[in-house]
Nucleic acid binder design. Sequence first.
DNA 1: TCAAGGAACTAAACTAGACAAGTTTTTTTA
DNA 2: TAAAAAAACTTGTCTAGTTTAGTTCCTTGA
Lengths: 234, 234
Amino acid sequence: MKKYLQIYHDLLNDIQAKKFKEGDLLPSDTKLVMKYGVSRETVRRAIKLLFDEGYIQTIRGKGSIVLNSDRVMFPFSKIESYKELVTSNHLHSENKIIKIEEPTDVPKNLLFGAPNIATQLIVRKRIVNDLPTVLDYDYINTDVTGIVPKQAALNSLFFYFEHDLGLKINYAIKHITVELADYDDLHFLEIDKHIPIVVVRSETRLADNHILSYTESRHRADKFSSVEFARRHE
Amino acid sequence: MKKYLQIYHDLLNDIQAKKFKEGDLLPSDTKLVMKYGVSRETVRRAIKLLFDEGYIQTIRGKGSIVLNSDRVMFPFSKIESYKELVTSNHLHSENKIIKIEEPTDVPKNLLFGAPNIATQLIVRKRIVNDLPTVLDYDYINTDVTGIVPKQAALNSLFFYFEHDLGLKINYAIKHITVELADYDDLHFLEIDKHIPIVVVRSETRLADNHILSYTESRHRADKFSSVEFARRHE
DNA sequence: TCAAGGAACTAAACTAGACAAGTTTTTTTA
DNA sequence: TAAAAAAACTTGTCTAGTTTAGTTCCTTGA
């Protein structure tokens, strides 16, 4: 384990376990240097990570103040699998496969001008607290993953990619819009009129910059909310 | 000017001016060390910033690859004033003040449980390409700013806070939901039925962690879009 | 009493190295 | 010629310091 990540996780655990409460000061750089027996730069790397993610506020001359992190929870700016999201928010959820197609073309409005690739389409319905809430269309780059087994789609695609295939997911670009429900939304989300749908279209890439997948997530707008942490900087 | 920010801005300018194109490699750490006459850690700080913001992808043993940053433009995860947004996207826009009230209470659904403070309310309408698009409710902490002159509200509140008052804006927490238009939306955005509205409720804080303002931004959903860059990490 | 000054803390920026671990290119060897 | 080895690159992590700048608190002197 990298030393700075060890320190980061130790501090984050203590913050999330409320051992440090909102407004408390974290131990100073010097104290952490002594506790862990590392150099100051290594401590500062851990502190910087907590700062960047909105857990603490560092003030020169004073220390690192713990912020209220209850609200930093489901940002667009994090890549989280649906499974992770459901688990960390203690939701009751089901997963249904609607259709699997292979090979398929990626729709043009997902490509944003990028060249088409050979993909496998997996369409899934997410049922949260007994209410159909999200419709997911995953176009998976079969050159990278091969054919995805049905069981992986039922459980968690990300888990399959990362743990079973050993792929390293790196970043995603997400386009967010609000659109009216189409006929598939009406049918699969079991709604009876054209209520708004939050549409998140994303392109996910691996550490080697290869495209892993294109995804379209269609959320019932009335069941949708997101919290973002944003910093102002030079 | 801080050295690492100088290097960051130089590289960012070159990326945005397409001197480095998508897929190109940035100069290596060693070359930048020589060019700027600084230590490697200083160079790496600049590189890390570009990486964090999604402009480049660093690969060990290879170099820093320039990503396509055309799409990284209006993320929730940035704090940008409306003025800055309009300018960087080359939009034609007008700004109308609908009402100014002082003192006012902050509505409970903006406070998220925080204690109430003395504020001045400024309600503004943003007209983009001759279409009323956004309705902004700003509840400004008068303990910090005093009474805000009307001209500042007409121009840019952020500019007034940062340049005229010398305040240091630090971070914001934003809650994003989709709701149906209320009667004020219908009236001021000049829409004739209850089309969806993207509501961004935010709390903005200063470097000393004091609350600067609570804001509710109500966007016509059909004119709304956002692009987010998200990294996956340990 | 209280205000000014200084000591003791804090983080921020920076330096100048080290070694590890990857990739690419060049050279050597079979 | 082709494969293997070595050299020369790259970024990633880490060490052990220095200087700068800001906050907090205690002491000293009017």
